[in-house]
Amino acid sequence: MPQRIRAIVITGNGTNCEMEMAHACKLARFDEVEIVHISDLLYGTEQLDDYHFLNLPGGFLDGDDLGSAKAGANRILHAAVAGREERLYDQFARFIAAGKLILGVCNGFQLLVKLGMLPGLDGHYDQQTVTLTFNDSGRFEDRWVYLRVDPGSPCIFTKGISGLYLPVRHGEGKFVTLDEKILERLHREGLIAVQYSDENCREATLEYPANPNGAVDGIAGICNETGRIFGLMPHPEAYLHRTNHPRWTREELPEEGMGLALFRNAAAFLRSANF
């Protein structure tokens, strides 16, 4: 009997991609998909422990007023859960320790990075070592980008995917590490799951606009060492059907959008896992 799998999509305080993120989970045949307002977590009416797949969608947490997702990270780190002796962060930590899956897209990726959950080197999930900062262009941009996928990465979500074409929609997506050593470690351990690339999804690029924000080594998304936490700036949930593709009226494309594969991988992994 395969595992029943449940996905939670957190929303509230400025998150805005929850609907399409939940839709992606449904298309990937999760048995249950719940969009949960963060107040339900803080009030203790919902808890992360009841789910297997945590989705942190795009948006502007608290307007990104203190820098992207900074105020949002502060809330998760410090706000107490009503009626329990714990912070929301403790539920995140349990979720990670249980080996469950977390996907952060755009603002969700920014959140994971600023919480320290990505890359979470050596299991330190509360120390920030990388960041996502203002695009080199100094502006928000909505454009589609090609992504090279590292076949050697432990990332659960990108297994079997050779390349991706997805939209970015952000003003703070430039990936930077605290120092060279961390960057080198990300490379060495295959944690750089996706990079902005040429049109063939082969070579990572620093060239604008293929690399839309000036990210170091074209880094578009990274995972932790178990490959179970994954964050990326481009939006897989924005390409679920061929009509989302900017050139669907002129190219032969499969019915299913490329972004769905990530969610299917998550579902397949969880269905065979044991919790």
């Binding site: 805005n16 991609c17 609907m19 399409e20 839709h23 795009g58 502006r139 928000f140 941009e141 909505d142 454009r143 589609w144 939209p167 929609r169 939006h235 949930e237 924005a238 679920l240 009509t243 989302n244 900017p246 050139r247 009226t249 002129r250």
Partner: peptide
């Protein structure tokens, strides 16, 4: 156009910019 998010909510079909190189 590019500084406005025209795809959030996931239902974009004909975007404000289109063509062979969008």
């Amino acid at each position: 156009v590019r500084q406005y998010d025209h795809e959030v909510q996931g239902g974009s079909v004909v975007k404000p910019v289109t063509g062979v190189v969008n």
